[in-house]
Nucleic acid binder design. Structure first.
Lengths: 152, 152
DNA sequence: CCTACAACCTCTAGCCACTACAGCTTCAAG
DNA sequence: CTTGAAGCTGTAGTGGCTAGAGGTTGTAGG
């Protein structure tokens, strides 16, 4: 007879939530949260009311995880999932979502770089604990005159 | 006689919350929130129980605004304000907060740049609406194999 | 078969830094 | 003295989870 019970969990077709969590790198609580907000469809349940996930769930959750890692909002992921479920799907729309997100990421990078520049300026003045330090960090925050021109 | 009543609000010494908001660029609700969480001290009140702010409040709120614009957490700002109130102040501590925040900003930039690279890759494949597009964006999200190596 | 214990369940509250609203009171111009 | 903007308090909502209480189920060892 085949060693059915002895097979590692990683080979099972139907798995409990903890195994799904391990396999995808998404926490158990987060999986339940995704179900609650309608990203992940409700799975079958065991006789004792515990969730049992199949291959489709693993794939869908991996998709969600990947998109979240890339910073897509849950709302965008909802749309992307809907698109991926559509047979003759609207590639344009998916492309627009990705492009728009890329734009947001680039904006964010630009804003952070200007912050970085000013923070670096603030943090390096008097970094050696010089006598004249009155304190440069506090002064810089109190006095906005140095950075009025680069508009934050 | 001098045109006391005719003076612009911008010259008044004691102002209501709306004027403080205008002067600092912080919303009225946010000012009340800062008071609630103890960043901004409780101001005097008019006979009718309305907040009346003086010069010190304007300066303190400007400090807070500047620090928030630079991305400092409210908790850090609380510490920075405490330091700036201290007579013989601990410049080291202020410097450490700024340096640590600079580190966080740099980390965030690095992470966003790696996202940007992958998003750009995803979004430009098939951006012309080519026939073979199946859709590249959805495919890329479903299939993690392209980016396993740069660790997000 | 029984027991122990990990893993699961639901529900609720908390995080950050605001933002928005409901339902009232006060201020100031005409 | 009237009107309407601006103020007040208090509560709830945002996004995307995370943490905990307090109970139930699944499973391996004895």
């Amino acid at each position: 007879m085949r060693p059915a019970k002895a097979l590692a969990k990683s080979l099972e077709r139907v798995v409990p939530i903890g195994t799904l969590a391990e396999r995808t790198g998404v926490k158990v609580e987060t999986i339940r949260y995704y179900e609650q907000v309608g990203l992940l469809p409700e799975p079958e349940r065991s006789e004792g009311n515990q969730r049992r996930y199949g291959r489709a769930h693993v794939e869908r959750l991996a998709f969600i995880k990947h998109a979240r890692d890339l910073g897509f909002a849950v709302e965008s992921i909802r749309t992307l999932l809907r698109l991926s479920d559509t047979p003759g799907m609207a590639c344009d729309e998916a492309h627009a979502i990705a492009a728009s997100h890329l734009g947001e990421v680039r904006d964010k990078i630009a804003r952070l770089r200007s912050l970085e520049a000013e923070l670096a300026r603030i943090a390096t003045v008097c970094s050696g604990g010089v006598a004249a330090c009155d304190c440069a960090v506090i002064e810089a925050l109190a006095d906005h005159s140095h950075c009025e021109h680069h508009g934050h």
